[in-house]
Every structure is written in C-alpha cells, then in structure tokens.
Simulated assay, not measured.
Amino acid sequence: MPRNIAVPVIASLILFAAAPLRAETPLQSSALVSSSVEAALPLADKIIVRKAERKLFLMSNGAALRTFKIALGLRPEGHKQFEGDFRTPEGSYRLTRRNPNSEYFLSIQVDYPNEQDVKRARKQGLRPGGAIMIHGQPNTPKKSRDYYANVDWTEGCIAVSNSDMVEIWLMTPPDTPIEILP
C-alpha cells in the first residue's frame, strides 16, 4: 500500500478494522464511512506540546483525550529564532493548512511565525523561517525506523508515528489552538 494513501481511505480502513460487522450493503459510500469515523472520534479543542517530555496532548475541556510520543527539531532546546536553527518554536499558535500529499505521512501546518516571531528575527537581520508542521514519518525514509522513533530528527517540526498522525488528523478541526511549551 503506498505511504501517501488518501486520508478517506485510511479513515475507511480504521473504521473497517474497528467496527463490528453490520448487515449493510457491501458498497457503502466512502462519505458514509468517513463520517462514521469522524463521529466515532472525539474532537480536540486544543493541543499542548511539552517539548522536554517529548509529548503531544490532544485536549478537550482541559482533559487529555490522547497522548503521543514526539520527535522535535535537531536542536530542541529553546524557542525557534530564525530559519535554519533546527529549533521547534515555543508559544501559542494555531493549526492551519492540511497537506495529505506532503513529503511526510500527512502534515498539518502550525501558523509559525507570528508577528512577534517575525519582529524578533528581523531585529537580528534574519528570516524567521516557517513551514513548521505536525507530521508523520518520511514517505521515503533515509534512516532506520528506530532512528525516527527515538531521535529528534526534524528541522523544527513536530513528528509522530504514522498511526498517531492519522488520529491527530481526524481529531483536530481547522484552526485548533496549539500551545508549545519548553
């Protein structure tokens, strides 16, 4: 199965694997299946990332719905200052654009840089960088599976396993706030 498989197909597979058998026609529409998966999963109203713990929490009304192990930028300590510093930003942002066809298994963009980030970088005569995402593993891995699971390896993004990325994708509505803590 290709690694960049369309999300509705993934959602259908999750539902099929998890759902009890029912007496329905075998040719259900993918819209029905996708809406059933979305209805079965609670939606997060916030994401909290704790960099020091290497954890991402999907939150709803102050309670954690799910917790995921994460990998960060190659230099994880401290707030992202400029393009190419290999740091993951810290602060309050929002989830914006979704890309089911990225270089990584699914990706959701974090709206870094904000106005403060741009000002800080420009004061130093630098560009703030961008394209900070929550994403799965590379579609074309260059390292072992163990490496991606146990090392901070991104250029500043927040990486999770592919199966975790499916849950994050399905459980976060557009414009979900994300708080990235040291």
Score class of each variant (00 low, 15 high):
Ala23Trp: 03
Ile180Asp: 00
Tyr148Thr: 04
Leu27Thr: 09
Pro76Phe: 07
Ile134Trp: 01
Val49Glu: 06
Val118Pro: 00
Ala149Thr: 04
Leu32Asp: 13
Ile168Tyr: 01
Ser161Trp: 02
Gly129Tyr: 00
Arg66Asp: 10
Ala44His: 06
Val9Arg: 02
Asn61Gln: 13
Lys69Asn: 11
Arg75Asn: 13
Gly125Thr: 08
Tyr148Phe: 13
Phe86Gly: 02
Ala18Gln: 10
Thr176Asn: 08
Leu13Glu: 10
Ile158Gln: 00
Gly91Leu: 01
Val37Thr: 09
Leu27His: 09
Leu13Thr: 00
Met59Pro: 05
Ile168Val: 14
Val118Phe: 04
Leu43Ser: 14
Asp152Ile: 03
Leu56Asp: 07
Ser92Phe: 09
Lys80Pro: 00
Leu32Ala: 14
Ser29Asp: 15
Pro42Tyr: 13
Arg145Trp: 07
Leu74Lys: 15
Pro100Asp: 14
Met59Thr: 07
Ala71Ser: 15
Lys143Asn: 09
Asp111Tyr: 08
Tyr93Lys: 05
Phe68Met: 06
Arg122Ala: 11
Met59Gln: 12
Lys142Gly: 11
Asp45Met: 09
Thr96Tyr: 07
Ile14Ala: 05
Leu13Met: 12
Leu65Cys: 10
Arg54Gly: 00
Ile108Ala: 00
Lys123Gly: 09
Lys51Leu: 05
Ser102Glu: 01
Pro76Cys: 07
Arg3Ile: 04
Arg75Lys: 13
Arg3Pro: 09
Leu15Glu: 05
Trp169Arg: 04
His135Asn: 12
Pro182Met: 02
Phe68Arg: 02
Lys51Ala: 05
Glu77Val: 11
Trp153Leu: 05
Ile10Arg: 14
Ala52Arg: 15
Thr96Arg: 13
